[in-house]
Design a protein around this nucleic acid. Structure first.
Lengths: 336, 336
DNA sequence: ATGAAAGCGCTAACAA
DNA sequence: TTGTTAGCGCTTTCAT
């Protein structure tokens, strides 16, 4: 084994052919005599030759790398999407570079470097409307957004059918006989939160229930904000009999705080979330929630992105996946 | 704006200099007349020129990309390490490619492609001993392992001081007066689990407490395995008065199951974990645990890796970070 | 079926 | 200080 990596030319010399023939062999182009191919393959093996990804990228003008940008990499929902995206990317012959961007400025700098310097062939952006980030993505560059993008139909996106998931969650509570149903939302600037709020409202209206603005509290997806929401609700005149939290972490905060207040769940207060994170079934009581398949959202986003890169997919598609109800004891004793 | 990306030569032509001068400008090499520099910069701006990362990599023989391989990307501990690593990487001018590998075969294929094809300059491997993965990492390639590697001192690694964290956790229980302390471990093939077990044993022995093998149950880090462990313990002759779970998720499973069995916590059973994940303070009761700074482990690993790449750090270092006790109500009423 | 030549966009080494 | 000449390792014409 030579101390410096061998190149296509070393192989060519060793096999007594031109470097181009070696290129043909490693690219499996058919036009090589079996005997020649064998000689080349022997040379490759004996030299331990491995083609350089960089040189290939250089010649092709492609990096075979995608990037995924999320607000952070640790939230279970985000990490699940990323994991799904990464698996699908690898299946399609790409690597996935994942980065977190806290704010619009970070995001912009990141995109600028990734896209401007052509480090990647395409971009997946999770939560495009979390701040102005949607706006700093360059035109004519393959991008797929993950998460609700309801107010712009001209872009590619994959997301949960948020409106429907919230509608179904609220319907579940209504079916159990609840009349005063509170809601803890995500940040209102995110389309995702707004869509879920829409679903909640539609369910109430369809059922002829009054909409009390005081029963809607804005959170930030964290358990702590769920706790704060519960405290705020408890200060109102009389408590709602059920709470729809727009995600499981906030539902956990609500649950925990309600218990601290001595409320019996679900008898005195029913709680439902969205996500179905693995720990949800270990909450006390186990949380009823709308299950969403986040890895699949990641996979679909990657598929769509690669389709866009290869122009095998039309310009913009919006895909919505559906959630389904997982009944546990936080809404009804017999839940499970 | 031309429809094809402009290159260093386009800029050179526009500015009336050689392409090499342009290269000097973008690399901030001092040897450029201010006036020339200004002309070049104007040309760069007017053409919207951005240097190609690939071409630079090609010329330099460096990708400015690192990879991090973990068993998965969703476990909070792993995701936190990755997030820390990614931030530090970016600070140092690298991108981080993170991938999950379920088993030894996946892992091997991934490393082979990443390293063999020179897609990255260095590798961070989380949980090197989860299976045979440590063995399939090539020699002479910059690698840093994250997680205990106690049985091989000849490699670079960053990890929690697992033995010490477990020792301290167990000491805490002993200090509260517990005499029969059970332990739920991670998979025994992982050094991390073994080191934590060692710490537990040392604390017991130092305190002169008997070691009952039946009180040690092997789990797999999941909440479900914590549940199973609790069930197994409940089938023994008499219950321990305290349980040390080697991570928080298993502690949650224990907690939840113990409550289902009607045990009062912490009066009848005290529980302590390791990790301090954000949700731990929302468990019922809030979980006493050993806090570890996982993002920092990631940051240190990246720092060490980049040091190895640049040969500014000596061949192998093993760094251990320490955990500290977070007292909550799962071990003592007045915990918080 | 194979080879020769040119080029991807940049940097490094040397010359002027 | 600046320009010229070679690569980096591969792919893509176009010949043969």
């Amino acid at each position: 084994m030579p101390r410096t990596r061998s190149t296509i030319r070393d192989v060519a010399r060793e096999a007594g052919v031109s470097h181009q023939t070696v290129s043909r062999v490693i690219n499996e182009s058919a036009e090589v005599l079996p005997e020649t191919r064998a000689r080349v393959e022997a040379a490759i093996a004996s030299l331990g030759f491995r083609p350089s990804a960089i040189a290939r990228s250089m010649a092709h003008g492609r990096t075979n790398t995608l990037a995924c940008i999320a607000p952070n990499l640790t939230d279970y929902t985000l990490a699940s999407v990323i994991e799904g995206a990464e698996l699908e990317a690898r299946r399609l012959g790409y690597f996935l570079l994942s980065s977190s961007a806290n704010d619009a400025q970070d995001f912009h700098a990141l995109v600028d470097e990734l896209v401007g310097n052509r480090r990647v062939d395409g971009l997946i952006v999770i939560n495009p409307y979390i701040d102005a980030r949607y706006e700093s993505v360059p035109q004519n560059f393959p991008v797929v957004f993950v998460g609700a993008c309801s107010h712009d139909k001209s872009i590619c996106s994959v997301s949960l059918d948020d409106e429907r998931a919230a509608y179904d969650a609220t319907r579940h509570l209504i079916a159990l006989g609840h009349q005063r149903i509170a809601m803890v939302t995500g940040p209102v600037e995110e389309d995702c939160s707004r869509d879920r709020s829409d679903g909640y409202l539609r369910a109430l209206q369809e059922a002829g229930l009054p909409v009390e603005p005081a029963l809607t509290i804005e959170g930030d997806w964290s358990a702590t904000s769920g706790k704060d929401a519960m405290i705020a609700l408890a200060q109102g005149k009389h408590l709602p009999s059920a709470i729809f939290a727009q995600n499981d972490r906030m539902a956990l905060g609500v649950l925990h705080t309600a218990r601290d207040m001595g409320l019996r769940i679900p008898e005195q207060l029913a709680v439902i979330g969205v996500d179905d994170m693995p720990l949800s079934s270990y909450f006390d009581p186990p949380l009823t929630t709308m299950h969403q398949d986040m890895p699949q959202i990641g996979r679909e986003a990657t598929l769509m992105l690669v389709g866009t890169i290869n122009k095998t997919v039309e310009a913009c598609t919006q895909m919505k996946l559906s959630a389904h109800l997982i009944m546990r004891q936080s809404t009804s004793e017999g839940g499970n």
